[in-house]
């Protein structure tokens, strides 16, 4: 690993790199390198042969029709798929050259480093404060907890709205506030990467705009990967965009997602190489 200026925080998972006999050669500007990643649910191939690099401190968007495997692939980056019985990942998911599925890697630690925000805001049924303090408490960072909570809420552009009601239940907030709380909760864990699975699909346009502004702000500190159904959203916020599609196997009825095209967002939206991408981004298919 030859990181210089933007080296990630020193974390136990990074130590594993020293244990590798032959670290895989990767682009040092990449946070993730995916090499022939296939995800199975039982016998069903859900995503096939994805190879791509996800760049440091950028927003990468996964777009494509329903069932194209974009969420499945996203969840394979922080091993959330481990929680689904029968889910299995083949190929290499490399985080700064470390195999996320390597034998010495602890999935719990992976999720400390690679956080996630979900489609539907899912705050815990606790106070706003306790939601944000949840991660730090688990990590044993109990000193200056008030400061940690404030910093995370500021980071999620939520502090001014909630500073006077930190003890209130999180479910009293609006949907957009709840989602920003979930982002604050994620930041408080001090991740390196934030994965967002359609974070605005349950929100109104104003809340969506605020989250998008927030994402652009957050990419200074974090690498962000976002799955979205909303092409305008990808066009507005993402530096890189990956277009996925789905093909149905007529014999088995199973549907397999695949990566069609991955390039800078402007290229995907203005000058795509593949006609399937062109049809999708121009709204002729989807």
């Amino acid at each position: 690993m030859s990181e210089t200026a933007q080296s990630p925080p020193v974390i136990p998972i990074a130590r594993a790199v020293q244990d590798r006999v032959n670290p895989v050669e990767t682009d040092s500007a990449n946070t993730f390198d995916l090499q022939n990643v296939r995800v199975y649910y039982g016998d069903m191939l859900a995503v096939k042969d994805v190879s791509m690099g996800i760049h440091h401190n950028q927003i990468t968007a996964f777009i494509g029709p329903s069932g194209c495997g974009k969420s499945t692939l996203l969840r394979s980056l922080n091993r959330m798929n481990d929680l689904i019985p029968g889910a299995r990942v083949e190929g290499d998911v490399l985080y700064h050259g470390i195999d996320v599925y390597g034998p010495k890697v602890d999935p719990v630690q992976v999720r400390n480093v690679i956080g996630m925000v979900f489609q539907k805001p899912n705050p815990f049924p606790k106070s706003i404060y306790d939601n944000v303090a949840f991660g730090p408490r688990l990590q044993g960072r109990k000193k200056n907890l008030d400061d940690i909570v404030e910093e995370a809420l500021r980071g999620a552009a939520l502090w001014d709205e909630v500073k006077d009601r930190l003890k209130d239940n999180a479910y009293g907030m609006s949907g957009g506030q709840q989602q920003r709380l979930c982002i604050a909760r994620c930041i408080a864990v001090q991740p390196d990467v934030i994965l967002m699975d359609e974070p605005c699909s349950a929100l109104d346009p104003v809340s969506t705009g605020r989250i998008e502004d927030l994402m652009v702000e957050l990419k200074k500190t974090y690498t962000i990967v976002i799955v979205t159904h909303n092409m305008q959203q990808a066009a507005r916020v993402a530096d890189m965009t990956a277009f996925f599609t789905v093909s149905a196997n007529d014999e088995t009825g199973s549907r397999t997602g695949m990566l069609v095209e991955y390039a800078s967002t402007s290229k995907i939206f203005s000058d795509p190489v593949d006609t399937r991408t062109e049809n999708y981004v121009s709204g002729r298919f989807g």
Binding site: K120, N122, L138
Partner: peptide, 17 residues
């Protein structure tokens, strides 16, 4: 709700936590 479980796992909580 499964959401809450996922949210906690995604923050690096162990099963026990």
């Amino acid at each position: 709700p499964a959401d809450l479980r996922q949210g906690a796992y995604a923050m690096g909580a162990t099963k026990y936590e």
